[in-house]
Simulated assay, not measured.
Amino acid sequence: MRRRSHRSQPAGRRSRTVVATTAAVLVGAVGMSGCDAVGGNEPGPSNASQRGEQKRQKPAWDRSPQSLAAVGDSITRAFDACSVLSDCPEASWATGSDADVRSLAVRLLGPAKAAERSWNYAKTGARMVDLPEQMHQAAAHRPELVTVLAGANDACRSSVRSMTPVADFRADFAQALRGLRRQSPTSQVFVASVPDLKRLWSTGRSNPMGKQVWKLGICPSMLKDSDAVDAKAVARRAAVQQRVVEYNRVLKEVCAKDLRCRYDDGAVFSYRFGDEQLSEWDWFHPSKDGQSELAEIAYRAVTAR
């Protein structure tokens, strides 16, 4: 993935003054706050043979949808992309209007139409259990495309034991897609994988200022005691990493059962966020540059043949 060097910030921007400002307002903050039904409304089959044929035939994917709704968590709200402890939806990878980000909606629809035909129902702090209600709100618009990026908060808990069980994660995601199918049968769905939280730890821990911010409570299951490399800390991080892998497997499997759903094949999980792509406020959420990279990943997936 190419980098946008023209938006790079000098290392000095992350000063102790920024950390002091962040610390004053970040206390108590938590981290990232990441298709069982067949899609479509084609005419009903006249016999069992036709029903079987319909199930085998996948409808053509529309590579240029004309409306878009987004669901998910703080990443899709562009939390901490513009200022400390604040959503910045105009910088959202999915529906934002920021010219530097060039959101998926802008790339697909153009700026003017994106402002009229895109909706963002993601919520900072949301987990997969919140997705059915978000999907219900999104489906009311009958969007031609719905984007999903959720799951980081299910892993970013106070402890490994508190992470969302995989079975619950699966049930909630499947319920969300069934609800969409009832309300808007022909809406296409793009599902982004959960980011690699261990990679974010590995990147951010090289910044002394960032590690101080993490101590205030960002994604403690992965980031607490960020310098610890004892067996217990290593095992804890490995457990969180494995749970994220399991969540992504669920996203892939459930999406594969829906004829109008595309999974990103782990593209977001595999993307190597660097210093430029992380928020200057918490060194964990995507910056505007990171949001732009997410938009590019999504655009490539949605428009692929």
Results as ranks from 00 to 15, higher is better:
residue 128 M to P: 02
residue 128 M to W: 04
residue 129 V to F: 10
residue 130 D to K: 09
residue 131 L to C: 01
residue 131 L to G: 01
residue 132 P to C: 11
residue 133 E to S: 05
residue 133 E to D: 12
residue 135 M to H: 00
residue 138 A to L: 03
residue 138 A to M: 05
residue 138 A to P: 01
residue 139 A to I: 03
residue 139 A to L: 08
residue 140 A to R: 15
residue 141 H to W: 08
residue 141 H to S: 12
residue 141 H to Q: 15
residue 142 R to C: 10
residue 144 E to H: 15
residue 147 T to Q: 08
residue 148 V to L: 13
residue 149 L to E: 11
residue 149 L to K: 02
residue 151 G to N: 02
residue 151 G to Y: 01
residue 153 N to M: 08
residue 154 D to C: 00
residue 158 S to T: 15
residue 158 S to Q: 11
residue 159 S to F: 09
residue 160 V to P: 01
residue 161 R to N: 12
residue 162 S to C: 03
residue 162 S to I: 02
residue 164 T to V: 10
residue 165 P to F: 04
residue 166 V to Y: 04
residue 166 V to W: 04
residue 167 A to M: 10
residue 168 D to P: 08
residue 171 A to P: 14
residue 171 A to I: 11
residue 171 A to F: 06
residue 171 A to C: 12
residue 172 D to K: 12
residue 174 A to P: 02
residue 175 Q to N: 06
residue 176 A to W: 01
residue 176 A to I: 02
residue 177 L to H: 02
residue 178 R to E: 15
residue 178 R to P: 00
residue 180 L to T: 00
residue 181 R to Q: 10
residue 183 Q to G: 14
residue 183 Q to K: 11
residue 184 S to C: 04
residue 185 P to S: 08
residue 185 P to L: 06
residue 185 P to H: 06
residue 185 P to F: 03
residue 186 T to E: 15
residue 187 S to D: 07
residue 187 S to C: 07
residue 188 Q to N: 09
residue 189 V to R: 00
residue 190 F to V: 12
residue 190 F to R: 06
residue 191 V to I: 15
residue 191 V to F: 04
residue 193 S to W: 03
residue 193 S to G: 12
residue 193 S to V: 09
residue 194 V to F: 01
residue 194 V to N: 00
residue 196 D to Y: 11
residue 196 D to L: 14
residue 197 L to G: 02
residue 198 K to V: 05
residue 199 R to N: 03
residue 199 R to K: 09
residue 201 W to Y: 13
residue 202 S to K: 10
residue 204 G to Q: 11
residue 204 G to Y: 11
residue 204 G to D: 13
residue 204 G to E: 08
residue 205 R to M: 14
residue 205 R to Q: 13
residue 206 S to N: 09
residue 206 S to I: 07
residue 209 M to W: 05
residue 209 M to I: 07
residue 209 M to P: 03
residue 211 K to C: 11
residue 211 K to M: 11
residue 213 V to Y: 03
residue 213 V to R: 04
residue 214 W to N: 07
residue 216 L to H: 06
residue 216 L to K: 06
residue 216 L to F: 12
residue 218 I to A: 11
residue 221 S to C: 12
residue 221 S to Y: 05
residue 221 S to H: 07
residue 222 M to V: 10
residue 222 M to N: 11
residue 223 L to T: 08
residue 223 L to M: 14
residue 224 K to I: 07
residue 225 D to G: 02
residue 226 S to G: 13
residue 228 A to G: 12
residue 228 A to R: 07
residue 229 V to Y: 05
residue 229 V to W: 13
residue 229 V to S: 14
residue 231 A to S: 14
residue 231 A to C: 10
residue 232 K to F: 13
residue 233 A to C: 08
residue 235 A to K: 15
residue 235 A to Q: 15
residue 235 A to W: 08
residue 236 R to F: 05
residue 236 R to D: 08
residue 237 R to K: 08
residue 238 A to V: 01
residue 238 A to T: 09
residue 239 A to Q: 14
residue 240 V to Q: 00
residue 241 Q to R: 10
residue 241 Q to N: 11
residue 241 Q to H: 15
residue 241 Q to V: 04
residue 242 Q to S: 13
residue 243 R to H: 02
residue 243 R to G: 00
residue 243 R to I: 00
residue 243 R to M: 01
